[in-house]
Design a binder for these strands. Structure first.
Lengths: 349, 349
DNA sequence: GCTAGCACTCTCGGCCATCGAGTGCTAGAA
DNA sequence: TTCTAGCACTCGATGGCCGAGAGTGCTAGC
């Protein structure tokens, strides 16, 4: 008699939990047994539902603001709900919007990614985030040293067209000739990953003739800076306005903390990267992670791949009271299209 | 007996207006005549203040939520207040923070600018915006065509190290040789402004031998895209979290619209560019501009210059109920330091 | 021209009664 | 057993009422 669920929940309890979550998400008001028995299409009376709801509360899936109120899902309840959710189908208009977006899209992945966050946020009405490929894995396709007036520009081009740059003051003794020679030397960074390049640049510095040592030291420093900096930065964001809507029942203070975290980027990166570990979708709900707990937020993220190798991730942030089905379906669809694109764009091996 | 003001306000009316604004900004509560006579250091009784306040209301500088409440400044009142404000002095700790920031700062202006927005927002507790030099005025220091797998990267480097790039699919017939030749040709874009470069690239296309025409067409297209795109984009933002604080009495909906406008960037750019027209500071308060009116917001912005030529602008957005004195002083100080830096960084003419 | 005094207005907070949604429990039906 | 009908009970929300207090505008007098 174990039923078809995973875990220990009977099928009717599942149905009740599902009804409560969906109704609560729709209205934002605690849900009563009457409502569930009416809308839930279970053939039982409200009294029976009451018993089930009491049991679900006991199990930690529902909570009670006060005696005479209905029930709302807990974070654990949402989790349970999400885990038992069958994969949804995208609605036609949304499918179309996504298709159109990817149809007219350009060749620059980073640009596409930014557009994709806006697409996602307008489709879901939540804020959207994306993390491009981790720069540490990027290979250098071109390395140059450019003289700009009193400065030197160290310019690295990743194999997918991403640019890494650093400006530095030109050392006193960096004559045109030395700069030229150094420029030739750093061409040897081509083909290396950023991490390898940082090492190699240090090696170049120590092996260089004295008149180029200063300048190559600068380069080494710059490559290292670039590597560190771009490791932390670069979360693309869209639709943050959606964090401040009536639908969201957040306190002003919560919105503030969330906006600040988005600006800091690193926390968001952590949450997005969880998706890369996951096969498909990763859903983080409220207290399941310190960050989301602090914001009463949920993050739905998915990785996208180039061929088989993970290339980045994209997702949304919204309140724990979120339309998970739509969110998951939409994020999944967009991530899938991004994978297609990334695969097509990648140099054939 | 005209007094020392500009316009028609008597000196005591000025003092009353000033006291009301400052008290209202401090507390957020409508200010009563009693309070003004106590804190305003005018040697007159509250009854006299009442008369003055009634007159100021008549003139449109103050407003009355209801009979038994005190008074709050109108947008016009703030404007008046700002116009009669003597230039303030920066407090020592803030002066120091600014100095430290500019002391340890790097050579990359764009990076500095982003840092400066964070600095400004943490000093003022409002959100901060900056617009770098308009790309139309940037001159190309280097133009390159780089082959990346199946794509072509068109890369332009501005004279101050700013990067403009566009990725395109490589045309079928773009052989390595043709690409190389084209690459040599586009080197002739060096020294031109983006606008001129767009024209010149078109000219190159028509004059090119047939085997390079496709590829140069792409380049022309790319340069044009880059010019248009970077014209609109690129407002740097810091401290948006400050838009959602208790201090700000905005409705959620207002915060939303403001965040959306920040994401769109163009409106913000318009507001920031007003500063470039102004000599020193530009203050836009509420209804004075459609955008700020819609958000109940005020924008305080200042241009910064390289030598004598305007290079960009920086400023803050906050509620109309803003500490204008501190805001103006701080923005002015940061803009001045930016000017120094931009001037020092610029290639000597 | 300023001020003291005063009547008047209007919001805000507290209090209370009422209402109603929703519960938990029990007894009886299937 | 398992479900349901019925019912007493709880507790927040709503709305009316009242008094307190802040602030005004006006007037008469210095």
């Amino acid at each position: 008699m174990a039923g078809t669920d995973r875990g220990e929940l009977g099928p009717r309890k599942q149905a009740v939990l599902r009804a409560v979550v969906e109704e609560y998400v729709r209205t934002g008001e605690p849900v009563g047994s009457e409502t569930v028995s009416e809308r839930g299409n279970l053939g039982v009376s409200s009294a029976t539902i009451r018993n089930e709801m009491a049991a679900l509360e006991e199990l930690g899936y529902l909570s009670h603001p006060h005696t005479s109120a209905g029930r709302a899902p807990t974070d654990l309840g949402y989790r349970r709900y999400v885990d038992m959710l069958p994969p949804g189908r995208l609605r036609e208009p949304q499918r179309k919007t996504i298709q159109e977006f990817f149809h007219e899209t350009a060749a620059d992945m980073e640009e596409v990614l930014l557009g994709a966050t806006r697409l996602l946020s307008s489709l879901t009405q939540y804020a959207s985030l994306a993390a491009p490929r981790p720069p540490a894995e990027d290979r250098i396709a071109r390395a140059e040293l450019i003289e700009l007036g009193p400065s030197l520009l160290i310019l690295l081009v990743g194999e997918h067209g991403r640019i890494y740059k650093a400006l530095a003051d030109r050392p006193e003794d960096a004559t045109g000739a030395a700069a030229n020679a150094a420029s030739t030397r750093i061409a040897s960074l081509t083909g290396l990953s950023l991490t390898e390049a940082a090492e190699h640049a240090r090696a170049l510095e120590t092996q260089a003739p004295p008149d180029q040592r200063d300048i190559l030291g600068l380069v080494a420093q710059a490559v290292d800076d670039v590597r560190l900096r771009s490791e932390e930065e670069h979360v693309l964001v869209g639709g943050v306005g959606n964090l401040a809507t009536e639908v969201v029942t957040w306190r002003l203070d919560t919105v503030r903390r969330l906006l600040e975290a988005i600006e800091r980027e690193s926390e968001m990166l952590t949450l997005l990267r969880r998706a890369s570990a996951a096969d498909d979708l990763s859903v983080t709900i409220g207290g399941e992670h310190p960050s989301t707990g602090e914001w009463d937020a949920a993050v739905v993220a998915a990785p996208y791949r180039s061929g088989e190798t993970p290339a980045g991730s994209i997702g949304i942030v919204g309140p724990t009271r979120m339309d998970y089905l739509t969110a998951m379906t939409t994020v999944r669809a967009v991530a899938r299209r991004l994978s297609d694109l990334a695969t097509a764009l990648d140099p054939p091996q």
